[in-house]
Design a protein around this nucleic acid. Structure first.
Length: 440
RNA sequence: UCCCCAAUAGCUCAAUGGUAGAGCAGCUGACUGUUAAUCAGCGGGUUCCUGGUUCGAAUCCAGGUUGGGGAGCCA
């Protein structure tokens, strides 16, 4: 006999009038003498199971009475529509089978502090809001991959253990690698995905990336997931067009398919509805002017001299002037990675762009056209104090049929934080890895 | 790494130098339509640690620990 239930809560409307078995966990229970309401959670949703004493055996009623929060059980009964039931449907209980008891479940329906919830993250993910956020995370990931697949991209997986730093030696997690010395956890798949681009034309990598930055903010994790498309024969303009279509497609699909979850999160979606191409674009130079012009509007967003990178308050200030994500393009090369193509008309700036999310959620994408000239790339490697021998394979990509190409990386957690209206990024991944927390 | 803030019951908090309390959770009982039910009762404390000031410290002081918010860096 299968243990699988005959129905799930998500599709319960199809079973009205039928006798079904649901399997799940007790989310909440209310006893009223000869009547017990069990709110059952099966992963797909929650449903009220009404147990009348006169309708069930004494043993079944006793089992129902003994259920505690998060006890697992199988409940059999008849589905009926009832406007008094949350969600409109309920189960008229006939049998209750306890699977696994739960005693003193720590997370009660009341309020809890951050420390307590983070220490119980393995249980917290059962709660309705966490459930909604993580469902939207799954939708963002599925939407991103499926959209790229439809555009002819090939998923090209890049290594997590790498021999050298992609963008510099600092901020890397190191581990011993047998007799070959140190290996480092990848902080990006970018360099390797360029090899894939040369093989397939359009590729993307998707996986966890690691940064040993001692960041202690609501926008940072030491382990986060990034999707990085790379396109051959694409220039900086093509790159931005791809990004605005990509992001719009993801937002559109979440609005389309995860409306209920957004409602659970009480997310105001008016800003999200406006996310359609084209996105506004300003240059770094214009951004510097904008910051100076709106001095004092956002705390910490003080005017910057040309050549300095923005801080979080500057990004918030810039984004607040637009009703959809905004590109800031052509940053000074000096503050950006070594592989970015210089602007032919102004070599001191790079053909790159950051995409800033509205409502203060910060940078969600960083991208650029890459240097395709082998001599220039070699020069930049030297200028950044990197060892040329570590990058011979990367230089090979320019020695054998080089082409202008562009790509970008999108941080999944920041996108999820933005779409769900989650203030802190730690709730957008099942088990966040942070500076001072690696358990559970 | 730097700046700011906090730590009291299982949880969320109160008690501003004078007998440590409430709500929720838990347990017992009542209740046939609850939506975080309601009502009655019960149990629950190394006030983060170490030291100091004081007749007296949860409260004031010093150091430490842990956590939170922010900065820098970045997606």
């Amino acid at each position: 006999m299968s243990l699988l239930p005959t129905a799930t809560v998500a599709t319960i409307a199809r079973h009205v009038g039928q006798r079904v078995t649901l399997a799940g966990w007790v989310y909440h229970k209310t006893e009223k003498g000869k009547l017990i309401f069990i709110l059952l959670r099966d992963g797909s949703g929650t449903i009220q199971c009404v147990t009348f004493k006169k309708n069930v055996s004494e043993a079944t009623f006793a089992t129902a009475q003994a259920l505690t929060q998060e006890s697992s059980c199988r409940i059999t009964g008849t589905v009926r529509a009832d406007e008094r039931a949350p969600g409109g449907y309920e189960l008229d209980v006939e049998e209750v089978e306890l699977i696994g008891a739960s005693h003193d479940y720590p997370i009660t329906p009341k309020e809890h502090g951050v420390e307590f919830l983070m220490a119980h993250r393995h249980l917290w993910v059962r709660s309705s809001k966490q459930h909604a956020i993580l469902r939207i995370r799954a939708e963002v990931i599925a939407a991103a991959q499926e959209w790229l697949n439809e555009q002819g991209f090939i998923r090209f997986d890049t290594p997590i253990l790498t021999a050298t730093a992609a963008e510099g030696t600092t901020n890397l997690f190191a581990t011993d690698y047998f007799d070959l010395g140190k290996a480092y956890l990848a902080q990006t798949g970018q360099l390797y995905v360029e090899a894939g681009m040369m093989a397939f034309g359009r590729v993307y990598c998707f996986g966890p990336t690691f940064r040993a930055e001692k960041s202690k903010t609501r926008r940072h994790l030491t382990e986060f997931w990034m999707i990085e498309p790379e396109v051959a024969f694409a220039d900086h303009e093509d790159n931005m067009r791809l990004q605005e279509q990509f992001v719009s497609a993801i937002v559109g699909r979440v609005l389309d398919r995860r409306r209920e979850d957004l409602k659970v999160l009480e997310r105001d979606t008016t800003m999200l509805e406006q996310v359609v191409p084209p996105f506004p674009r300003i240059t770094y130079d214009q951004a510097i002017e904008l910051i100076a012009h709106h001095q004092g509007e956002v705390e910490g967003a003080d005017p910057l001299p040309w050549g300095e990178d923005f801080g979080a308050p500057h990004e918030t200030l810039i984004a607040s002037k637009f009703d959809r994500p905004v590109f800031v393009e052509r940053f000074p090369s000096a503050v950006k990675a070594f592989y970015m193509q210089p602007d032919p008309n102004r070599p001191e700036v790079a053909l790159c762009a950051d995409l800033l999310a509205p409502e203060g959620y910060g940078e969600i994408i960083g991208g650029s056209q890459r240097i395709h000239d082998p001599a220039l790339l070699e020069q930049r490697i030297h200028e950044h104090g990197l060892r040329i021998e570590d990058y011979e394979w990367y230089l090979d990509l320019r020695r054998y049929g080089t082409v202008p190409h562009s790509g970008f990386g999108m941080g999944i957690e920041r996108v999820v934080a933005w779409l769900t209206g989650t203030r802190h990024i730690r709730e957008t991944i099942p088990f966040p890895r942070q500076l001072y927390r690696i358990y559970p």
